[in-house]
Design a protein around this nucleic acid. Structure first.
Lengths: 199, 199
DNA sequence: GCATAATGTTAACATTGCTTACATTATCGG
DNA sequence: CCGATAATGTAAGCAATGTTAACATTATGC
C-alpha cells in the first residue's frame, strides 16, 4: 500500500487502472476528455479520481507514460534486428504511423513540458531516447551516435507533427509512408554500409 | 466593411486587434489564456469578443496566423542572402529560438490541426513552406527541393518540439544553438558548395 | 434625420477542476 | 474474532470557463 498501491482490490477494484483505460478509450475515440467524463465512464463519482491522481495533469502524465512505453515497444518490435540504414526509414515510418493512429495520445505525450517530477515519465522518455541511440550506434558504428540519434528522432518527430497538423498533406497513408521514406533517404543516404565489422 | 472589417472605428475602436494583442501579451507572459481573461484585459465585457470571433478556437487561429507570419519574416530577415549550406543550420537555429522564446504561441501555431476552413491560416502556413522550399532550391539547385524542404523543416520542427518538451536538455541556450547546428551538420554535410553558377 | 446594422453589455446556463465534509469498507493488531 | 484505522468512494458546493439570448447603444447609409 502507500506508494506502491497498484494491485489493491478495494471498493471498486483497482480504480486507477480503470480510469487510465477509460481515458485512453476516450482519447482513441476522439472524444473530449475531462476528469469528470472519465469518472462517469468508469461509473464512479466525480471526486473519486482524486483518490488516485492529484489533479488532471497527473492523469495526463500517466497516459503519456503509457503512450511512451507503447511507442517504444512498437518501434522495437517492428524492426527487431536492425541492420541496414534503410531500416531507419522504416523506424520513422512506424513513428509517424503511431502519431497518426493515436493523434490525441501523441499530443499528450509530446505536447507539453516533460514533468520532471514524475519518475515514471522521465524514465519512459529516456528509454525511448536510449533505444534510438542504440540503434544509431549499431548502424553507424564509426560515427558519434548522439547527434545521429538526435537527428533521427527530431526528423521523425517533426514529420509526425507536421502531418498531424495538416502542414504536410496527410490524406493518403501510403503517400505519407513514402514521403517519410524519401525524406530520410534524402538526408541519410551516404550512410555506413551494413555488415561493417565492429571496431 | 462586412467581410473586410479591419479598420472600423466603432465603440471601442478596433476591438478585434486589441483582443489579439491582449491575448499575445498574455501568452508571452505565460499566463493562462481564456476568452474571458482576454476580454477583461481589453477592458471589455465577457461577451464582447463573440462579436469578432465565433469561438475560442477562432481567436486561437488568429493568434496562430500572427505567429506564422512573424516566424516567416523572422527567418527571412535573419539570413537574407542565403548562400551556403551552413546557413541552413542558422535558419534552423532561428526556428528553434523562436519556439523557445514564444513557447505558448508556438504550441498554438503547431499544436492542433490546421484549420483548413480559415484562408488566412492556410495561406500563412503555405507561405512558410514556400519560403523554405525557395531557400532549398537556391542552395541545392541540382536536387529536387521538395524533399529537402520537407526534411529541413521537419528536422528543425522536431528539434524545436523536443527541446520545448524537455526531451532534449534545454537549459543552456548556447548549447541548444550548438546542438541544432551539429545536428544539421550531421545530416546535411555533403551539400552543394556555394558559388555554383546558376543552371 | 432616421432606419438599420454593427457593436457592446448584462444575465444566465451548462460544464469543468477542485475541495471539504462525510460515508463505507478493507486491513491489521490485539 | 473484533474493533481501530486508514484507504477508498460519495455528496455537495465553489469559482472559473465557454457560450448564448435579450437588451442597449452608437455608427452608417439612405
Amino acid at each position: 500500500m502507500g506508494t506502491n498501491a497498484a494491485r489493491t482490490d478495494y471498493h471498486h477494484g483497482d480504480l486507477r487502472s480503470t480510469l487510465v483505460l477509460a481515458a485512453l478509450e476516450m482519447l482513441e475515440a476522439g472524444e473530449p476528455f475531462s476528469l469528470r467524463a472519465v469518472a462517469r465512464r468508469a461509473g464512479v463519482s466525480t471526486a473519486a479520481p482524486y483518490r488516485h491522481f492529484a489533479d488532471r495533469e497527473a492523469l495526463e502524465t500517466a497516459l503519456a507514460v503509457h503512450g511512451l512505453r507503447e511507442l517504444t515497444s512498437d518501434l522495437a518490435a517492428g524492426t527487431d534486428p536492425l541492420v541496414s540504414a534503410v531500416e531507419i526509414g522504416e523506424l520513422a515510418v512506424g513513428y509517424v504511423r503511431f502519431a497518426l493512429r493515436r493523434p490525441a495520445l501523441f499530443r499528450l505525450m509530446f505536447g507539453r513540458a516533460c514533468d520532471d517530477q514524475d519518475d515514471d515519465r522521465v524514465r519512459a522518455a529516456r528509454a525511448l531516447h536510449d533505444y534510438l541511440e542504440a540503434v544509431m550506434t549499431e548502424i553507424f558504428p564509426q560515427s558519434d551516435p548522439a547527434p545521429l540519434a538526435t537527428a533521427g528522432w527530431s526528423l521523425a518527430h517533426g514529420l509526425a507533427f507536421l502531418h498531424l497538423d495538416g502542414k504536410l498533406p496527410s490524406t493518403d497513408p501510403v503517400a505519407i509512408d513514402e514521403r517519410v521514406r524519401s525524406t530520410f533517404a534524402a538526408v541519410l543516404p551516404p550512410a555506413a554500409r551494413p555488415g561493417i565489422e565492429e571496431p
